[in-house]
Design a protein around this nucleic acid. Sequence first.
DNA 1: CGCCATCTGTACCATTCAGTACATTATTGA
DNA 2: TCAATAATGTACTGAATGGTACAGATGGCG
Lengths: 187, 187
Amino acid sequence: MARTVAERADILPLLGEVFREHGYEGASLAHITARTGLGKGSLYHFFPGGKEEMAAAVLKEIDGWFEANVYAPLRADEDPAAAVRDMLARTDAYFRSGRRVCLVGVFALGEVRDRFGEQVASYFARWREALAAALARAGLPSAEADDRAEEAVLAIQGALVLARALNDPAVFGRALARLGRRLLDGL
Amino acid sequence: MARTVAERADILPLLGEVFREHGYEGASLAHITARTGLGKGSLYHFFPGGKEEMAAAVLKEIDGWFEANVYAPLRADEDPAAAVRDMLARTDAYFRSGRRVCLVGVFALGEVRDRFGEQVASYFARWREALAAALARAGLPSAEADDRAEEAVLAIQGALVLARALNDPAVFGRALARLGRRLLDGL
DNA sequence: CGCCATCTGTACCATTCAGTACATTATTGA
DNA sequence: TCAATAATGTACTGAATGGTACAGATGGCG
């Protein structure tokens, strides 16, 4: 029979889109087969654990992307202020300027929070910590750095919720602009 | 047969809890009957439109509560600064200091956003507008009032997401405290 | 008492769900 | 060329889904 897909990794972004749009419960195998173009046979060949393994793989991929493109630069960059600005730019790009929703946030609010609790918590905790570290290196007192970092992570999630609720992506852009002004204020 | 419930309105809070915890898709009739103690017969007697009518009724009830307890005071109170502080206190109480999630936010992120888009958008838009009006009356320039109001509404949602993701309700308390300081800053 | 609208449990329906089984096909490497 | 393995489509399962039908029960009112 026809061989359609080269790599398991190639379909992770597609899976991500389905979970993003429908949530874990709402992402039926029918949706998944339709979006990926793979039949159940292939799907269960790549993911013997079924939907749960698919979701876990997607979470892991997202986690890896943020680790490489956001958290690590925040921790390592020699110029913390530039790292913060880079973070905002990459965040804007990743979430398509507010047109895309955060899968981890969706999972956090859903009933699947329990199932993927560890991965969900780690994603946000590491974001907050990496940002706080950058702010501290930039010269902020530790407590103030922690406070601003938490505020930023939370604002990004809230902006995504509000942008989608109001069907107005510009909300997200304004929130990022606000963070750009405030995170490095007084430095 | 046993008559169990007095009023349709009595079960709306229970329905709200189910939708809050499981989302719209995940709130199966099995969950609903278990939580409310009502059989399908009664449920479909009170809500002939099924799940969709139940969710719409819950949204309407929440909307009414916020209109009466949050938006209207913000618009009407003679002391805008006090009204803002009241809003934060009532918000804290409503969301159980971060232990409870926002049903409207959950719906906004889910695929039901399209079905209840109007109610979802109106909930957030009116919150933002009422708060902006209060801040403007308190002496803030219109543009600054709008900006702070949007930031506040968004921060509340983001704090709920983060609190649940990290399983740490204190995140919500810190966010509200931050808003208390910042909303009325410079007045 | 007895009527009647309101309420409620139960059996049932078609559909969809995630997941399994397996035969069949393609691809690769020897 | 020819196995061995990787990939794939299809048919299927049992359970759960939302929703319907309806026969009763219940309570208030005359």
